[in-house]
Amino acid sequence: MITNRLALGVALALSASAASAAAARDYISIVGSSTVYPFATVVAENFGKTSSFKTPKIESTGSGGGLKLFCSGVGVEYPDITNASRRIKSSEVETCASNGVNDIIEVKIGYDGIVVANSKDTGQFAVTRKDLYMALAKDVPNPDGSETFIPNPFKTWKDVNASLPETGIEVLGPPPTSGTRDAFVELAMEGGCKEIGWVKGMKKSDKNAYKARCHSIREDGAFIEAGENDNLIVQKLQANPSALGIFGFSFLDQNSDKVQGSEIDGVAPTFEAIADGSYPVSRPLYFYVKKAHIGSVPGIQEYLSEFTSDKAWGDEGYLTDKGMIPMPQEERAKFASDVKALKNLEM
């Protein structure tokens, strides 16, 4: 039986007439963000085990890569759902539309905190977003107050803020291809950058220069790109107690015996603080559904209702066990009813 099928498959490939192979698909195909991947996979697994449908297939392609695949067209060879750790951009909506993907359902699923952590062998850090900006930006405002930028001169945390310890600045973080890096730059770095009055003024006068100044991370060795693997950063922090690391909350949650999260603007990265919004560096997570596929690929609507059920994304749901921070009750109710009505994305 198996060899028969194999022979058939090979014959199909050899005769190059295999277009019919993709004619039907009986499982949901999901692509997208590696940050949403650990959450989407739990839902998919539960969905597969408790329903009569096959378990969806989930590829971890990154938010941008996922949206690109998602927007390439309508038909079973294209994915049905894409996960994203940021909102879809209007340029991506246009790409989608030009490929015939017009009706998209947007589902916000919850929040993910980004933590700045260090080894438990040393004291807990307490920084502000401004400290993070001053310590990690490529160029910082000239301390003489002349409203110009100079290349980042700071070597130790004490140089940045006299209340911080006198250890060298050494931060391990994700590479630019990562959604975590994007979110860290946007929320922590830009958040700190904005606190300097005249730089904030730049946003109105010269938006591009403002972005370039606030979003570029120093390249002189103080910030070390440690790859996409957050487990690796945790291990490196253990080996090097003077270093700080940037990664997602779920990794802090799992490794709370090894690393501790730094307070940012006086708030420690706890589940509660991220959930109520007082922890400043957290981002929303989304997924997008191709409406045209509902009906042609079995199980999409059932998958949506599994994801938006309280046992999954609720305050006590199984997603919170995996480190996802749930949305407040009203927001969940709003998205759940939108999903039920298959409401289209509004930018």
Binding site: R5, G9, V10, Y27, E45, I58, E59
Partner: peptide
């Protein structure tokens, strides 16, 4: 080619994910 994916079901043939 999309083989880096979360797949729970054990494939039953060369066309299954």
């Amino acid at each position: 080619i999309g083989m880096v994916a979360f797949i729970v079901d054990i494939p039953g043939g060369p066309l299954d994910p």
